[in-house]
């Protein structure tokens, strides 16, 4: 008998009257809208800042270029890596500018581990979804984006479109499931709610434990669909 068969055999033979338990299962979505109060950018920003992220609000995509330039200059960043949005039409102009930049390199899968660990000062990506209640951005590495980009360089800059602000994680999950009906899950889907941190030494909070020390979130209000 295989281990699998043995384990499943033991579990299946352990039939317990479960009538009591099944009565307990409530409709999961019924209280969805009832659980929180304020919605939107304010909460999103507030929560992110509570988690030590830096939030920059821009009115329109045209301002991104100037903002990035000043960030790069102020921080004396020399090398960055960026990934395009999975919805390029939205950020076409921005992406055109980014691809012209001398210090930014677009992800194409040829980056080495060493590049991420030692070369790039920051990673720049676009977020397709965000969650207001917890101040969370959703990353979807895959064709355009690498997992390493938002993880290994010391700073992660992420551009978030406000049209995609979800109320809470639960609502995001429902929307995500509905949109992706039938399609398999991406290899990796990540929720990020601030820079890397730890309180493992005497409950003292320290940032930049393993991942980025800084998370810079740029939100753009006036994006048309």
């Amino acid at each position: 008998m295989s281990s699998k068969a043995n384990i499943l055999g033991r579990l299946k033979s352990a039939t317990i009257e479960s009538s009591k338990n099944s009565e307990l299962t409530p409709n999961l979505t019924s209280e969805l809208s009832a659980c929180s109060s304020t919605f939107g950018l304010e909460q999103f920003q507030q929560q992110l800042e509570l988690s030590h992220a830096e939030v920059i609000n821009l009115d329109n995509p045209n301002q991104i270029e100037a903002k990035l330039k000043s960030l790069i200059k102020d921080n004396a960043w020399k090398h960055g890596v960026w990934s395009s949005s999975t919805n390029p039409s939205r950020f076409l102009d921005v992406e055109r500018q980014l691809s012209k930049s001398e210090i930014l390199r677009q992800v194409d899968g040829s980056e080495s581990k060493a590049d991420y660990f030692h070369h790039f000062d920051f990673g720049l990506s676009f977020s397709e979804a965000a969650i207001a209640e917890t101040g969370t951005i959703v990353l979807h590495p895959g064709t355009n984006e690498s997992r390493s980009l938002s993880l290994i360089p010391p700073v992660h800059v992420v551009i978030v479109c406000l049209k995609q602000l979800h109320h809470n994680f639960e609502q995001f999950m429902l929307d995500f499931e509905q949109q992706g009906q039938g399609r398999p899950m991406p290899s990796n889907l990540i929720l990020v709610s601030g820079p890397s941190k730890t309180a493992d030494i005497q409950q003292t909070l320290a940032y930049g434990a393993h991942g980025p020390q800084r998370l810079i979130v740029i939100t753009i209000a006036a994006l048309e669909d």
């Binding site: 290899s187 990796n188 990540i190 709610s193 309180a199």
Partner: peptide, 24 residues
């Protein structure tokens, strides 16, 4: 556990690196 509304990372892994992925 820690009184956090959510942790910094919630990581959902559904497969090894696919042909179209850049890393993993």
């Amino acid at each position: 556990a820690t009184g956090q509304a959510i942790t910094t990372y919630f990581n959902m892994i559904s497969s090894p690196r696919q042909s179209e992925d850049n890393d993993g």
